[in-house]
Simulated scan of single mutants.
Amino acid sequence: MQAIKQSQPSGQLSFARSDNSTLVVRLSGDWHLRHGLPGPDLVLKQLDTAPKPARLTFDAAGLGDWDSGLLTFLLGVSEICHTRKLPADWSPLPEGVRGLMQLAEAVPEKAGARHEAAHSSFIEQVGREAISFARSLDEFLAFFGEVTIAFARLAVGKARFRRVDLMIVIQDCGANAFGIVTLVTFLVGVILAFEGAVQLQQFGATIFVADLVGIAMSRDMGAMMAAIIMAGRTGAAFAAQLGSMKVTQEIDALTTMGISPLEFLVLPRVTALFLMIPLLCVFADCMGVAGGAFVSVTMLHTSLRSYLIETKHAITLTMFFGGLFKAAVYGIIIAVAGCLRGFQCGNSSSAVGDAATQAVVTGIVYVIVACGIFAFVFNVLGI
């Protein structure tokens, strides 16, 4: 009998030939996944060694402690045997291992599942993503319709929610967000001023940096940056809060008590973000202009008074209120996206994190789509 031994840091795997037709797989030592284990490919190499065996069996006399790593190895060996139609004798294995192996193989893998996943074409993948986006948009619009109905009930005084919840969310969406909005929008104003100065310095027209920064911030960038910040900060928080409530069955409890979760949980959040994000947009516009002024005064040697006068002449009320209108729409989109993903959350702790991630992605994507639509419409209207 000739044995070939392969050692690993944890369990040990060796092979023997009891005769020319039977390959004996010897398992010894402690098979713990954290220590690293041999792979089924070692068995595959022995099966390809001449003379090729017609049968496979095991010797587990030296097997010590084991965990799921042993099962993973045995399932890989089992798949090799099924593929080669090689009979295998599993009886020498411990009873617990055999029982778990039977459970693992109770539901066979769908035929061709791996082949289909591995060979899906690019067109097919694009189609799947397009269908997924269409379904997501349909769910968003349906949920937005339900929120609109809830607002109609609020207008006639029939909606049920606690006013203190609204005040808490307003504080979170408003005052508590000033710090991050200040930092990001000030730096955006600095960046816009730098980019504009590089080109305008060639013509000696650095004073028009004020026009560039003022118009960009008031028309689009102020509302856009405030929306993206709130999507990552508040939209994710809405999804996580509602997702946690769904996992702990608090939403089901509200339904059982005859209280609409949409009115009690969603209305305060949508209302708060709808009211606060235009104020954040005004603040973002001011901080962006301040960032541009910092660059112009310190690096372009433009007086602060001249910069502010030029900004005043560049910005019109149409631009300013157009930016506020965009911000209000963005706020509704972010709040609805966050609440929708929270309501769609699964019943596990990991699903809460997934819901928060999806809320951020959905909110930012829809905000950018809305920004593109606004840009086209405002251009057609000459605004």
Rank of each mutant, 00 (worst) to 15 (best):
R162H: 12
R341D: 09
E124R: 13
K52H: 15
V107F: 06
I333G: 05
T255Q: 15
T318I: 13
E129T: 07
T298E: 12
V169A: 12
M287A: 06
K312F: 01
L262I: 15
V184G: 10
T316R: 08
S303A: 08
I123V: 07
G39I: 04
F343H: 09
G372R: 02
G346S: 06
K52P: 11
G331R: 03
D65Q: 10
L100N: 00
L103S: 11
I131Q: 09
A3F: 04
W66P: 03
L242Y: 07
T83E: 15
L44Y: 06
K5F: 02
R55A: 14
L100C: 03
I228G: 12
L56N: 02
V190A: 07
S260G: 05
A113W: 15
D30H: 12
L262T: 15
R163C: 14
C339Q: 10
F122P: 08
V270W: 05
Q201R: 15
A328Y: 00
Q344G: 06
A356G: 02
L262R: 15
A106R: 11
L70S: 05
E310D: 08
V289Q: 13
A370N: 01
F321G: 04
L154P: 11
S349F: 01
I215Y: 09
L103H: 01
L44C: 13
V209P: 09
V188H: 00
A370E: 04
F321R: 07
V164E: 10
V156H: 01
L137K: 03
Q46S: 09
M167G: 12
I4W: 01
T206M: 10
L71R: 01
L254N: 06
A177C: 13
F161D: 07
L381Q: 03
M101K: 01
T316S: 14
F73L: 15
P53R: 01
V190E: 05
R135L: 11
A226L: 09
M224I: 15
S218W: 07
A375W: 00
T255R: 15
D30Y: 00
G214N: 00
F73N: 08
L100T: 06
G112N: 06
T185R: 00
A134S: 08
H115F: 13
G157T: 00
R269G: 01
A293Y: 00
N176R: 13
L42M: 14
N347T: 11
S132H: 03
R305E: 13
A3V: 15
P92T: 12
H301D: 15
L37C: 00
V352L: 13
A355Q: 09
N20V: 07
A193N: 03
V97P: 04
F374K: 02
L275S: 05
G322P: 11
G258Q: 03
